[in-house]
Design a protein around this nucleic acid. Structure first.
Ligand SMILES: [Mn+2]
Ligand SMILES: [Mn+2]
Ligand SMILES: [Mn+2]
Ligand SMILES: [Mn+2]
Lengths: 158, 158
DNA sequence: CCGCAAGTGAAGCCTTGGCAACACTTCTGT
DNA sequence: ACAGAAGTGTTGCCAAGGCTTCACTTGCGG
């Protein structure tokens, strides 16, 4: 039941998964803010600190600090008392993040998760979905859609 | 394309999903450490700070600090220069977390994600999988297993 | 045009989760 | 028995992401 210590052996690659999780997490807030700012610009033509804060469920100084980081990382720009806007890079990220978010929600729903729960859980999960996994999700959804098409349409064609 | 501000209207429930994601995240490290400590105890009969740190991919003071939090939250106990052990509560959490981890990995693999990628992505995703979603995952896996049984075995039975 | 409400900024505090550097204890091999 | 290696603890640093409080700008309604 109780084995010896590994000495000079294995278990060296193990921690890599935690590093990846930490890296993903450090991007999570960036991604959520960029997506949200994109949403607000789409709806209102600008993204104001108060609106960002309200939608993110934080106070306005917290939103301000997050936007500072976005600016520092070249994803957004803003001037005092004016709204926040995305750089090209920020806008591109927003697009990807939005698409990934949708795919994750769709996948969860396809698996059988209630829509409301899917929306809640996806908000956290999405940031840990790698490109490879995202592709697998898309492929699965493609397949699932075909199958239900087959079930719903094809039978009366044959 | 560009509508008016909501004034006194909707969009008030929106931020709840970010709150949930933040709450889940604040549990993530607790969960990973508790699971890891459980693993080490299972393998070696004790969990030492150095081993914990190594497997988590952090330095030992970081692991020490995390264990302090576990103790503060009643999940672990330890005495100076002795190993770290789980309380009943901690052990129970470790069990649940381990099971959830397995389920998430299994689901990803069932969806078509390569095993290695599944392992990496699951480490971050797992913490955002609610009970409802977990149940849906289990149900899906159950179904998927039956279906592949049917495909692989039943045809020659009929 | 002007005063007030709303929006924004700035400062300072807290907690968490990283790190390095250094001090101390335990263990182990000779 | 003991010296050196390994393990552990402590301290102090940093950045991030929350918060409150207070000060300043803006934008409006009258
Ligand atoms: Mn999110
Ligand atoms: Mn999202
Ligand atoms: Mn994890
Ligand atoms: Mn895990």
């Amino acid at each position: 039941m109780q084995q010896d210590r590994p000495e000079e052996s294995e278990a060296i690659v193990e921690p890599e998964r935690f590093n990846q999780a930490r890296a993903a997490q450090s991007m999570a807030i960036l991604e959520d803010y960029v997506e949200m700012i994109g949403d607000l610009i789409g709806e209102f033509g600008e993204a104001r600190i108060t609106d960002i804060a309200q939608r993110m469920g934080v106070t306005h100084p917290t939103a301000t600090k997050a936007v500072s980081r976005l600016k520092r990382e070249g994803l957004a720009i803003s001037r005092p008392y004016r709204g926040v806007f995305l750089t090209d890079e920020g806008a591109a990220m927003a697009e990807l993040v939005r698409a990934r978010h949708r795919t994750v929600v769709d996948l969860l729903v396809a698996i059988g998760v209630p829509a409301e729960t899917a929306e809640l859980d996806a908000e956290g999960m999405e940031h840990h979905v790698s490109d490879v996994t995202l592709k697998a999700f898309e492929a699965f959804l493609e397949r699932a859609t075909s199958v239900s098409d087959t079930i719903e349409e094809a039978p009366r064609k044959g």
